[in-house]
Amino acid sequence: MSGNEVRRRTGGRSARVRSAVLDATLEAMAEHGADGVAIRDVARRAGVHETSVYRRWTSVEQLILDALLSYSQQQLPVPDTGLLRDDLLTFGRSVAAYLATPLGTALTRSMAATGDDAALAASRAQFWQSRFELAQVMIERGMARGELPADADAALLLELLISPLHFRALLTRMPIDDHFVEQTVDTLLHGLPQSGPSSRR
């Protein structure tokens, strides 16, 4: 028996159905945007009955939220290198790699283009809040080690890290290379470099 067979059996049918539904939800989002996701279409893509979806998720908004959180946790794990700068670099590189994939690009654009539907807006806000709560442990560890002031705003620091990456991915479409990630992290931690006579005046 192969390792893959063991993993499939360990999760059981419920885990396989959940995985298939979440994958189908991501595919639907990538194709139609968050506004265009429908339970019937997701069930068809996943090869399950609609009732199997409704038993686990009571609304399409909950389904989208679960799919995004599950995928982001797989693709964007929170590092623990022992140094804040290295944590932020590793996390920034993961975000850049995620944004560079076809699915990551499509999902990000889909979330950005979501309309003013109240339920979808709440789902989007909950997604980002959950991501910040998971990632802010990097900032808290940095505070505990004395790498940041004790009153540093963890949510703001994380926004300042990921916003330039999303700006390039969504607006300017410029490449997000490793040098750009390093520049972003170092500017976040130390400010803009000062050089030349004008900086000493």
Results as ranks from 00 to 15, higher is better:
residue 70 S to L: 13
residue 183 Q to V: 13
residue 9 R to F: 14
residue 117 D to G: 00
residue 72 S to C: 10
residue 104 G to R: 00
residue 191 G to Y: 01
residue 63 L to S: 04
residue 57 W to S: 11
residue 112 A to P: 02
residue 43 A to D: 10
residue 142 G to S: 05
residue 191 G to P: 01
residue 148 L to Q: 02
residue 33 G to K: 06
residue 181 V to M: 03
residue 82 G to E: 10
residue 148 L to D: 07
residue 132 F to Q: 15
residue 85 R to S: 08
residue 45 R to Y: 12
residue 93 R to T: 15
residue 97 A to E: 13
residue 159 E to F: 07
residue 5 E to F: 14
residue 4 N to E: 15
residue 151 D to V: 04
residue 25 T to C: 01
residue 176 I to N: 01
residue 62 Q to A: 06
residue 160 L to K: 03
residue 2 S to R: 11
residue 180 F to Y: 04
residue 137 V to P: 07
residue 89 L to K: 08
residue 150 A to R: 08
residue 52 S to Y: 10
residue 4 N to F: 15
residue 194 Q to M: 10
residue 8 R to Q: 15
residue 18 R to P: 03
residue 200 R to W: 15
residue 67 A to S: 07
residue 110 S to W: 02
residue 4 N to P: 15
residue 73 Q to R: 12
residue 199 S to R: 03
residue 195 S to D: 13
residue 28 A to K: 05
residue 139 I to S: 01
residue 18 R to H: 01
residue 68 L to K: 06
residue 167 F to L: 10
residue 6 V to T: 14
residue 191 G to I: 02
residue 6 V to S: 08
residue 40 R to Q: 13
residue 60 V to K: 00
residue 96 A to M: 11
residue 137 V to I: 12
residue 140 E to G: 05
residue 93 R to A: 15
residue 43 A to N: 07
residue 139 I to K: 00
residue 42 V to G: 04
residue 156 L to Y: 04
residue 152 A to I: 11
residue 126 Q to C: 10
residue 147 E to F: 07
residue 67 A to I: 11
residue 17 V to M: 02
residue 196 G to S: 09
residue 47 G to F: 09
residue 17 V to T: 07
residue 24 A to S: 11
residue 73 Q to G: 13
residue 16 R to V: 14
residue 106 A to L: 04
residue 114 T to N: 02
residue 94 S to D: 12
residue 26 L to P: 05
residue 157 L to M: 04
residue 1 M to E: 14
residue 76 L to G: 06
residue 97 A to S: 14
residue 22 L to A: 08
residue 185 V to S: 03
residue 173 R to Y: 11
residue 189 L to M: 05
residue 26 L to C: 05
residue 92 G to S: 09
residue 194 Q to A: 05
residue 156 L to T: 09
residue 65 L to D: 13
residue 57 W to G: 08
residue 78 V to I: 12
residue 135 A to V: 03
residue 123 S to Y: 13
residue 2 S to N: 15
residue 171 L to C: 12
residue 7 R to I: 15
residue 94 S to I: 14
residue 189 L to D: 04
residue 64 I to N: 01
residue 117 D to P: 00
residue 138 M to P: 04
residue 109 R to W: 11
residue 19 S to Q: 14
residue 143 M to T: 15
residue 29 M to K: 02
residue 136 Q to S: 03
residue 91 F to K: 04
residue 195 S to I: 13
residue 193 P to H: 01
residue 107 L to D: 05
residue 118 A to T: 07
residue 66 D to Q: 08
residue 155 A to W: 09
residue 49 H to C: 11
residue 69 L to E: 13
residue 101 T to D: 10
residue 80 D to R: 09
residue 61 E to F: 03
residue 163 S to Q: 04
residue 19 S to H: 13
residue 156 L to D: 06
residue 96 A to T: 10
residue 60 V to M: 00
